[in-house]
Simulated assay, not measured.
Amino acid sequence: MPHEVRGVIARGKGAEVSVETVVVPDPGPGEALVRVQACGVCHTDLHYREGGINDEFPFLLGHEAAGVVEEVGPGVAEVEPGDFVILNWRAVCGQCRACLRGRPWYCFATHNAAQKMTLADGTELSPALGIGAFADKTLVAAGQCTKVDPAASPAAAGLLGCGVMAGLGAALNTAAVGRGDSVAVIGCGGVGCAAVAGARLAGAGTIIAVDLDDRKLEWARGFGATHTVNATGADPVAAIQGLTGGNGADVVIEAVGRPETYQQAFYARDLAGTVVLVGVPTPEMRLDLPLLDVFGRGGALKSSWYGDCLPSRDFPMLIDLYLRNRLDLDGFVTETIALDQVEEAFAKMHRGEVLRSVVVW
């Protein structure tokens, strides 16, 4: 029978969120019911609340989560009740042209649970990124559950569900940072610091963190940055060139999502270097670059979707590194909070006071 749980709801554009009763169906074919143990407060949730994703209110927010599978529907083989899982928002289909070409991280037909969660009055909810994990329990497609070692802290593990994976993957997967490479990361919030950590894991020789906030630059140093640049007092392009023998970095990762910082990334890379855009722009933003400069500098301009990750491959590997003290996922958890403190956490995130607030049950 359906489950009545508490969930964080965004009812309208810009309105403060509220904790309300959510009705979660029993899992149907291909679905799983997950008891949420921890869920990070990600900037994407704030985008939903502000109407920056779409206008399909009301939203059940939360998506950066870990928990335990309680029930599964018919035909589910990936997970079973009792499994500790990280939730992901790109459950690959296995049948689209990307999957059939052996590139499932680009899957063009990712899927979510078929059934809808609702408010107590029957109003259908739009779960953030098809997950909706600011709730005691949530219903997802079974493919959105990735089983990992239960020894991991749920608060840390859940962060691989979105922002931390996006940053790690931007360095490890999209940019394919190599040993000894020079890497610059522009924007050192949660995603940018994760990109720094990914560059360090990959063996980069020089890792340059760029931000406007000294506090964030200190966080980046903790994750492996060898140099920092405060862009309020220095030209980032000149500074990055100065730290790389005048050439520019082999890889520049833009984790802000603004035209001006993207231009900085473009000109701060070495000839034939790589720029990776992982920061999320808003719909009205436009980019103006001389086409001759694009041609003349060569290299690669890439966008990173979810760190080009394949959850079934990447989550267990990264959790293993975490458990062997080679990846400091705990360092991203600035504070743990209760479900009714999400609105306050949004304000802290907006002020740049936290890498991640994490709701813990």
Rank of each mutant, 00 (worst) to 15 (best):
G190L: 04
Q264M: 05
D213Y: 10
L243Y: 02
P281A: 05
G279F: 03
L217G: 10
V278P: 02
L271C: 01
K216F: 08
K216Q: 11
D270C: 10
V276R: 01
T244S: 04
N247I: 00
G233L: 14
V252T: 12
V256G: 02
V280G: 05
G192E: 11
R221T: 14
P283E: 06
D250N: 15
R258A: 15
Q264Y: 03
R200E: 14
E260V: 09
D270N: 10
G192T: 03
F266S: 04
A202D: 12
A255F: 03
D213E: 13
G245W: 12
A209E: 07
E254N: 10
Q263G: 14
G248Q: 01
A204C: 11
G198T: 06
D211Q: 07
A268P: 06
Y262E: 15
V210M: 08
P259N: 11
H227F: 07
A255K: 02
G224R: 06
L277D: 11
V256W: 01
T274I: 15
V251N: 01
G248S: 04
V275P: 00
T206I: 15
V256N: 01
D213V: 15
D250A: 15
A272H: 01
Y267G: 01
T244N: 04
T282H: 04
R200S: 12
N230P: 13
C188W: 02
G205I: 12
Y267K: 01
I207R: 09
A272F: 00
A202K: 13
L277F: 03
G205H: 15
W219T: 06
